[in-house]
Every structure is written in C-alpha cells, then in structure tokens.
C-alpha cells in the first residue's frame, strides 16, 4: 500500500485555454500554483482562510476559492483565472465593462472574486433580484466600495448581456 504514497503529483490543467503540466507538492494550494508556478498574479492572495474571495478562480466551470483547494487533488482540471476573462480581441468582456462603467473597481483587490461571482450568478439568473445579487456576491469582501457600486455593476452587466444575447453567442 505504501506504493500509493508519492512526494509530488504531476497534474495537467488547461488554464485560460492553454495546457500546463505542473508538479504539485502535497499541501500546496491552487492559489500558490496559479500565482507562483504559472505566474498568473491577477488571482490575489488575501486571507487564506476562505473569507475574502480575492483568490477566486473558475474550476471546471464553477467558481472556487483557490486558497481552499489543494493543487495535488486536481489531477486534471479546466481553470479560468481573471486573466482569461477578456475577449479574444483584448477588450473587456461585458461584465468587466459594466464593472468599469459603474465604478465596480476601486483598488481592484477583490476583482477576481467579484467578477467571477457576477459571471456565475448571471449565467444562472440572467435577471437577478437584489437578494440573488447579495447571495451571489456573499463570498467576497470589498473594503472600498461599500458594495453599492458592485450591485449596480451586476445590474448593468445583466442589461448588457440581455442586449447582446441573440446577436453574438458567448
């Protein structure tokens, strides 16, 4: 049985569309792997306890806190970080643009969690109620905005996505 024990795990992840092979040491978080081994520092390190949401990434189509996920437990994974949100032509996606328009960014530290949470919320609830927005963003802390501009940004993003739906997919 001891032959099951290894000192590192070679994982294969597609990150923002690009395939990577990484040697994951036991105990290392997905956050550290993304920032230090892949150099994608847009994913922010905050509390490392799961409270703040600044380290949010999308893992196999669902948002997760990368500090709470151990890299070695993901032998194969599809990951999207904040660097992967922009459109192919380099412009902001509609949710990012709505956050920009409505002052949803101030210092930007919470942006990974706020943007990815907003995108998951709007995928499930294209016309979210205030309560759904509160629940959808609940996993993220923001020290700048007082949250009002974030709620406005999500509503603006919903309108943008409604306007463009039916014209261009995605």
């Amino acid at each position: 049985m001891d032959d099951l024990l290894v000192q590192s795990v070679l994982v294969q992840w597609r990150v923002n569309g690009k395939l990577h092979e990484i040697e994951a040491m036991p105990g290392m978080s997905l956050l550290d792997a993304v920032r230090e081994q892949l150099g994608l520092t847009g994913t922010h390190m905050g509390c490392q306890t799961g409270h703040c949401g600044a380290c949010t990434v999308m893992l196999d189509g669902r948002i997760v806190k990368s500090c709470l996920t151990q890299a070695a437990t993901l032998p194969r994974a599809e990951i999207v970080t904040i660097e992967g949100l922009k459109r192919a032509d380099g412009t902001l996606n509609p949710v990012q643009q709505a956050f920009w328009d409505e002052a949803g960014f101030q210092c930007g530290y919470c942006a990974p969690g706020m943007l990815l949470s907003a995108m998951e919320l709007l995928a499930e609830h294209p016309e979210p109620t205030d309560a759904q927005i509160d629940t959808g963003l609940a996993g993220n802390l923001c020290r700048c905005t007082g949250y009002r501009s974030l709620v406005r940004a999500v509503k603006a993003a919903a309108r943008k996505l409604q306007d463009t739906s039916g014209q261009t997919p995605g």
Binding site: H51, I63, V64, K65, L68, T69, T135, A138, G139
Partner: peptide, 10 residues
Amino acid sequence: AGGGRQVHNR
C-alpha cells in the same frame, strides 16, 4: 452555509 457560492461549489 457561509463562505459564498465558491464554498458551496466545493
């Protein structure tokens, strides 16, 4: 449960 959608997902 607390922790937000990210925690509910995992």
